[in-house]
Design a protein around this nucleic acid. Structure first.
Length: 509
RNA sequence: GGCGCCGUACCCAAGUGGUUAAGGGAGCAGUCUGCAAAACUGCGAUGCAGCGGUUCGACCCCGCUCGGCGCCUCCA
């Protein structure tokens, strides 16, 4: 039974779906005007894993994640480049799929766009006006926050408190400073749609209400996003949705913590962000391996806590994964077991599955889930030393695949894993670049110049094996000088040899 | 000014009102080994920012202090 922290109640609560065996979940996606950074990756991954865990637990998950494709920032970017908004959004939606795909983020069941739901949005705004919760002023429509008594229940704020210290610009046309736009009249050249209030475009919050209700119904189970969306975005979504339907909107509100750099929030405005693609570009490893490192790193902290991104944290993730894939190599070798060792291994697998499930059920405690897998790794290493049958080894690898699937880990083939850094890639010592100076007013942050990678042609597996055999022959002849030369040669191609007690060797890249 | 979060060993990171405070990384010392790598074994917080309080008993509950951060404006 899953327990999950609900921002609405401020407590961890047992999760019950409204409909049996089906979970309806909506997550705020990204505004598509730029490349995604690691913060976006964390959010996407957290909800990807929640979805996978729910499926693992036997639910069918209807998962909706939107693209915000009408927005001031998009218009601004389009104007800067002298292209259409459509061109901007198409470009960055494509980039989103590329980047998230590399991270192994699965696509949602529906990925709606605001521009494709204008009818629903206009309907919703009309309803709010009819119900007296919204008012029109010269082509703009505002939601009147004072008409929704429960306003502030998600973010635990009171309207009065908000007013007191708020840095909200005074808009004479609003009845209350916190009233927010449902519909904005458009200026010439801006994207616009016909509406009862004239040509315009939707405000930011209304699209999520319209799209979630369209695809999931008026009341659904989980609504998620980053912590920073709690106020005002989700607060406003609740106000306008509940106001319009008179029903509860989402039942569980789930928010992920931030990725930080040096204990500070990573954000565009601070200029201290790393895009997903730049990490892949700088990585010393293949796309698959880098993706798994990033996933492990992002899951090494519980989703609600802050997570500091650094070169070291990625190295730790890499080292941890090396340990798993080292084990997988051993599990792929054949062996003789005993009733005792095979039995112990099966027991350990059983306990691990149970512990893993409990960890994940406890508000998606991925660090605990990973610790369980680490314990199994350690246990299996011991048992392999004592002797473990080929069958049980294979089952164990299968278990890592099975549980790992929930986290998106351990899915790649053993020989796809790269243990060593790619040799001869100058200038790529680390994922991290020096801190970017904070941009001054109105100035964009500077990107470092692109790095050119020189790839050493890789040795084919057969070539490596030939060399390894040659070396073992030399070792048999006690020609250790030659043996070491071959080791050196292979090392220069990024290959590490591990000698086994029986005189044969395993090798890894 | 309002609301909220965090502070666990060298680093990352779980956790519990009362047994030995998970797990990983790094380190050190061993086993194994021609060498190496991997693996294994051992060592490592008498203490969970500090100070009070509640309690038979608190790292875990309450209060205060110090330190760090977030939201209140676009933001995952």
């Amino acid at each position: 039974m899953l327990s999950i922290y609900n921002t609405l109640t401020g407590k961890k609560e047992p999760f019950h779906s409204l409909q049996p065996k089906t979970v309806r979940m909506y997550v705020c996606g990204v505004t598509v005007y730029d490349y995604c950074h690691i913060g976006h990756a964390r959010s996407a991954l957290v909800f990807d894993v929640i979805r996978r865990h729910l499926e693992f637990s036997g639910y069918q998950v209807k998962f909706v994640k939107n693209f915000t494709d009408v927005d001031d920032k998009i218009i601004k970017r389009a104007n800067e480049r002298g292209v259409s908004c459509d061109a901007i959004t198409a470009e960055y939606i494509e980039a989103y799929y590329q980047d998230m795909g590399k991270l192994g983020i699965r696509q949602a069941t529906h990925e709606p766009k605001a521009t494709e739901h204008m009818a629903e949005i206009i309907d919703l705004v009309s309803t709010l006006i009819q119900k007296g919760l919204a008012y029109e002023v010269a082509g703009d429509v505002y939601f009147q926050v004072e008409k929704y008594q429960a306003y502030g229940r998600l973010s635990k704020r009171k309207l009065n408190d908000l007013q007191a210290g708020a840095r909200v610009e005074v808009d004479e046309r609003k009845r209350h400073p916190m009233d927010f736009a449902l519909w904005k009249s458009s200026k010439p050249g801006e994207p616009s749609w016909e509406s009862p209030w004239g040509a315009g475009r939707p405000g930011w919050h209304i699209e999520c209400s319209a799209m979630s209700m369209r695809h999931l119904g008026e009341t659904f189970d989980i609504h998620g996003g980053g912590m920073d969306l709690i106020f005002p975005h989700h607060e406003n979504e609740i106000a306008q949705s509940c106001g319009a339907t008179g029903k509860e909107f989402a039942r569980y509100w789930v928010h992920n913590g931030f990725v930080q750099i040096n204990q500070e929030k990573m954000s565009k405005s601070l200029g201290n962000f790393f895009t997903i693609r730049e990490i892949f570009e700088k990585s010393e490893w293949s796309v698959e391996v880098t993706g798994e490192i990033l996933r492990y790193f992002l899951l090494s902290t519980q989703y609600r806590g802050p997570l500091d991104f650094s070169d070291q944290s990625l190295k730790e993730a890499k080292n941890a994964l090396n340990g798993f894939y080292d084990l997988f190599k051993r599990l792929a070798e054949s062996g003789q077991g005993s009733v005792e060792t095979d039995g112990k291994a099966n027991m350990a697998i059983g306990y691990t599955r149970e512990g893993f499930r409990m960890g994940m059920d406890d508000d998606l405690n991925t660090p605990v889930a990973l610790a369980e897998l680490q314990s199994l790794r350690s246990e299996l290493n011991k048992l392999i030393k004592q002797g473990l049958s080929t069958e049980v080894r294979s089952e164990a690898r299968g278990e890592f695949r099975f549980l790992g699937k929930v986290l998106g880990l351990f899915q790649i083939e053993n020989d796809q894993w790269q243990f060593c850094q790619m040799p001869f890639r100058p200038g790529v010592e680390s994922f991290m670049r020096p801190p970017i100076p904070r941009p001054r007013d109105g100035e964009m942050g500077q990107s470092p110049p692109p790095r050119t990678l020189r790839l050493q042609p890789e040795l084919a597996d057969t070539e490596v094996q030939l060399k390894v055999d040659e070396r073992n022959e030399a070792r048999k002849q006690k020609d250790f000088k030659k043996a070491d030369e071959i080791r050196q040669f292979l090392a220069s191609h990024g290959i590490v040899i591990e000698d086994k007690p029986d005189g044969t060797s395993r090798w890894k890249r």
